[in-house]
Design a binder for these strands. Structure first.
Length: 538
DNA sequence: AGCCTTTGACCAGCG
DNA sequence: TCGCTGGTCAAAGGC
């Protein structure tokens, strides 16, 4: 089970109160049912249904509160079970939308799924099932116009995207939101305010090219670009958790949580999908050309620390680390000989704001696609980084960012949980997919407490603990708000806890001229040298 | 002078 | 236990 459950989880996040989202999804997937049936994901989907999977989406949540909602919920469930996402239910959904709009006063424009449908109707459905395929000519940003994404945005922009809004910090509403989240959304929230509310961002931030645009953690989000004008694929499902009735909290759960997996099922699912990125990486596959054009810079500085030819990959994979102090975000980039990026995988979430354009190093190599990562702090204004207060989960939690860290946010709308962290700005990963950390997240779920610390990769137990914590936090009632349509990737932090109370990751050591003592290159650590610091000093 | 990239070696996880 | 593979380290060199 799992595959689809996970999707379901994501969908919930993405989905606006309106049932339109399903249409949207169906459009994206082509034939929702067919798409879901192909590939592992599909199988899971089916299984989940068989297993009594109930798609506790927004509709269902609402149903708990009112009769109409109940009907809606049933409709949704039926749709899910039968796999009839598309036209068959279109009429009914439309009705729901109207009713909801009337009731809630929300009147979001209907998503035009035509624009996002693959131009070629004959597309391999199987392929679609595995990925969200975006037509080569279609910018992921187009999705931003979708009510679905907007609604998500409403809830909270993800740090990843840079749209992240650490809003109001109104934690007190957690429980209430949990129960009524969608409903409230209808009533008040569904205002697409996330962007508006959030601190003013550069336009490119809001609607960055290609990936940024949304492209769309996970985690790890994955977009694979095919070497030739390939459609961007989003593979959100990789680590999505399964949602079951048991998981009522799932509603509040953001994709991150889902990704992280709190439940055994989610874990199982992850295991099933182990093939790809268990790690919770986000892969962005996209047309390299687009990627490049989209954003040569993602707003962060990266240091390449390795390159290797990976088996099965046509091109060598380069490993990059964010040079910002105490930021453990990494990314793997596969680049064709022509210099086109064929794949980018993000891991981790930035815990710092993007650099000002003039401060960015012109490291084209690393930035090529990059894209999109936004910064948590930048958005929330809290400056919470790992240290200050991570942002985790925040995506989904209304008013709360930052409870956990370590996520990677990648693109579109799928938010995933990272560990330590924060969300990467989605900008970076637009159009990508997400993966979540797997085990760590799961562990966290079991742990039950919320930890803000940064995990170190090395500190596995720690990271696991955090996952659990994060999960617990979610369950505890934090309201997982609506996520903005972005992909989140999970991150694993690689940090050690030092005597200063912070976690630091040592990533290098070098003897500096004039200083007999090796310089410990630890981002942000006082007394240590970091490239970021050096740049800042300059 | 210092940062960044390159690249071979090393390490850890997995089967 | 061994080999494979992915990921990271870190010395060396370039910019």
């Amino acid at each position: 089970m799992g595959g689809f459950d996970e999707h379901g989880g994501i969908m919930r996040d993405w989905m606006p109160p309106s049932s339109n989202s399903q249409s949207f999804y169906a459009g994206m997937l082509g034939d929702g049912a067919a798409g879901s049936q192909a590939g592992p994901t599909v199988e899971k989907h089916d299984n989940s249904n068989d297993g009594g999977f109930t798609f506790p989406g927004p509709d269902r949540q609402v149903s708990e509160n009112d009769d109409d909602g109940s009907q809606r919920g049933q409709a949704v469930d039926e749709g899910m079970k039968t796999g009839e996402f598309g036209e068959q239910k279109a009429g009914q959904r439309a009705g729901l939308v109207e009713r909801m709009a009337a009731r809630a006063g929300h009147n979001a424009p209907r998503l035009n799924t035509d624009i996002i449908k693959p131009a070629d109707g004959s597309q391999n459905q199987q392929a679609q099932s595995a990925y969200l395929t975006i037509s080569p000519n279609l910018s992921p940003g187009a999705f931003l116009d979708s009510p679905v994404f907007l609604s998500n945005s409403l809830v909270q922009p993800s740090p990843t995207t840079g749209k992240f809004q650490f809003a109001s910090n109104d934690n007190s509403n957690g429980d209430r939101n949990k129960d009524n989240f969608f409903e409230e959304s209808n009533n008040t929230s569904f205002a697409f305010k996330p962007f508006l509310d959030s601190a003013p961002l550069p336009r490119d931030h809001v609607n960055p090219p290609f990936m940024s645009a949304q492209s769309f953690q996970t985690n790890e989000a994955v977009a694979q670009s095919e070497k030739q004008v390939p459609p961007q694929k989003i593979e959100p499902s990789q680590t999505y958790p399964d949602f079951t009735e048991k998981n009522n909290f799932s509603l509040q759960m953001n994709p991150f949580q889902a990704l992280n997996g709190n439940s055994d099922r989610s874990k199982q699912h992850r295991e099933e999908h182990h093939h790809d990125d268990n790690d919770a990486y986000q892969r962005i596959n996209g047309d390299s050309t687009n990627a490049n054009s989209a954003s040569s810079e993602d707003g962060y500085n990266w240091r390449k620390y390795g390159q290797k030819q990976v088996k099965g990959s046509e091109y060598p994979r380069s490993y990059y680390k964010c040079t910002h102090a105490n930021c453990s975000v990494k990314k793997k980039v596969e680049r064709s000989h022509e210099g086109h990026i064929t794949e980018i995988i993000y891991k981790g979430a930035h815990n710092h704001p993007k650099l000002a354009p003039n401060r960015r190093s012109g490291i084209g190599s690393s930035n090529a696609l990059s894209d999109m990562q936004g910064d948590v702090n930048e958005q929330n204004g809290n400056g919470n980084g790992v240290d200050g207060g991570p942002v985790w989960g925040t995506n989904t939690r209304q008013g709360h960012w930052g409870q956990e860290s370590n996520f990677e946010v990648t693109s579109t709308g799928m938010a995933m949980q990272g560990q330590n962290g924060q969300f990467e700005s989605s900008d970076a990963v637009d159009g990508s997919c997400t993966f979540s950390n797997d085990e760590e997240e799961d562990d966290r779920a079991t742990h039950g407490s919320v930890s803000l610390g940064y995990d170190g990769e090395g500190d596995e137990s720690e990271s696991k603990r955090r996952k659990v914590e994060a999960y617990a936090a979610d369950v505890s009632g934090a309201t997982r708000a609506i996520r903005e349509p972005r992909v989140v990737v999970q991150t694993t932090s690689e940090v050690d806890i030092l005597d200063d109370g912070y976690r630091w990751r040592k990533y290098g050591q070098k003897v500096v001229k004039g200083n007999p003592n090796p310089s410990q290159i630890e981002p942000g650590r006082p007394g240590v040298t970091t490239s970021a610091q050096a740049q800042a000093a300059q």
